[in-house]
């Protein structure tokens, strides 16, 4: 973390009399998830479904890292934004984001302990269900595409999820950096 010295905490930086900005602290999750929804479209003009649904991965990662930070109804606006750019029939991300938020909440209350592996396994289940359900809903809208076309996408998404989690953790630290001076 040489390029962001204030994150490591060893840089001479005034910390006393500073608080995190409330707007940044509350807005960062929403902003990163929306950027995640935009990202697959901008990265490349793909001729097949090859990139992971970054919006959904970021959404799950935020809910796993900070369970109460996003309200349980956050899937409604965030899913709507995702639907505008994802190419799926409108409403599919609204339904799937909301269902995932409720499902994650249920699992979290029933899981007595958590570590990297359990979180990843839970996320893998949600990612596979999300992508498979996405194909199902797209097939209802258009001509049917076989499920095998998304197998590479599922593999890439599952392997990339820990990386998305690291990014979300970094965003979480940036979010809570105290930089607003208290008067």
């Amino acid at each position: 973390m040489k390029f962001l010295p204030f994150l490591s905490g060893d840089a001479p930086r005034p910390r006393i009399n500073r608080v995190p900005s409330p707007a940044v602290a509350r807005g960062t999750p929403w902003l990163t998830i929306m950027l995640g929804s935009l990202l697959p479209g901008l990265l490349l003009i793909a001729s097949g479904p090859v990139l992971p649904p970054f919006g959904f991965l970021t959404f799950v990662a935020w809910r796993q890292l900070r369970p109460g930070l996003l309200p349980i109804w956050a899937g409604l606006p965030l899913g709507m934004f995702d639907d505008l750019y994802s190419g799926q029939p409108f409403g599919s991300a609204v339904l799937l984001f909301s269902a995932a938020a409720i499902g994650l909440d249920v699992i979290e209350t029933h899981l007595p302990w958590r570590n990297f592996l359990t979180e990843w396994l839970v996320a893998i289940g949600f990612i596979v269900l999300y992508i498979a359900a996405g194909v199902g809903l797209a097939n209802l809208d258009g001509a049917p595409a076989p499920l095998r076309v998304v197998v590479p996408q599922i593999v890439i998404s599952v392997l990339l999820y820990p990386l998305v989690g690291r990014f979300v953790a970094l965003a979480d630290r940036l979010r809570l950096t105290p930089f607003v001076e208290v008067r």
Binding site: W73, P89, S98
Partner: peptide, 17 residues
């Protein structure tokens, strides 16, 4: 509101079909 969001998603889907 969370459950209502999921239901609204279902309604939006049906409308878009």
């Amino acid at each position: 509101a969370g459950v209502a969001g999921a239901l609204l998603g279902l309604v939006l889907l049906i409308v878009s079909f």
